[in-house]
């Protein structure tokens, strides 16, 4: 989400310039190279702008995503605990334990939704095999197809 390209642009242009300085007589090649560089920079900037424009309206969607992932974990934990309490008559212990477990599950959900932690165990490998795009990060932005 956060830019990583700006660091690269000056580098490439510098390398290009120093390479050009080694053959100062070849004016045409330099001009062509500059033009090409300008073209790439332009394309990259356009791509970046499109990326940013795409990211903005998706911000609310991402916020609801993370909040709902977290809250869902806690709700399910609390619900499970309550049902177990009703069934076994262990009030309030199952509720306490399961709300805390649900909290852990909620944090796990958030981490998974953000793609920091991969799916359980071998699902990491599995997701990597399937073109890698479909792993933990589910819906940040309209995706590659939109």
């Amino acid at each position: 989400m956060i830019e990583r390209s700006p660091g690269r642009d000056p580098e490439t242009s510098e390398a290009d310039l120093s390479a050009a300085a080694r053959t100062p007589t070849d004016e045409a090649a330099l001009a062509a190279r500059l033009e090409r560089l300008g073209g790439t920079l332009e394309a990259r900037r356009a791509a970046e702008e499109a990326e940013n424009a795409k990211a903005r309206p998706a911000g609310f969607a991402q916020a609801t995503k993370i909040a709902s992932e977290f809250v869902a974990g806690v709700i399910v934990g609390g619900g499970l605990g309550w049902v177990i309490d009703r069934a076994l008559g262990t009030t309030p212990w199952a509720l306490i334990v399961f709300v805390l477990l649900g909290f852990a599950a909620g944090v796990l959900n958030v981490l998974r939704a953000e793609g920091v932690v991969a799916g359980a165990g071998t699902r990491l490998r599995e997701a990597g095999k399937n073109s890698g795009s479909a792993s933990g990060r589910s819906d940040e932005g309209p995706g590659p197809t939109a």
Binding site: A61, T64, K65, S68, E69, V71, A72, G73, I75, V76, G77, L80, F98, L101, G102, A104, A105, G106, L108, N109, R112, A120
Partner: peptide
């Protein structure tokens, strides 16, 4: 925790 996380999927899916 994994089971709770799995069960919370329909909730987060629908709530979203």
């Amino acid at each position: 925790i994994e089971i709770i996380s799995f069960l919370s999927r329909p909730i987060s899916l629908s709530v979203r």
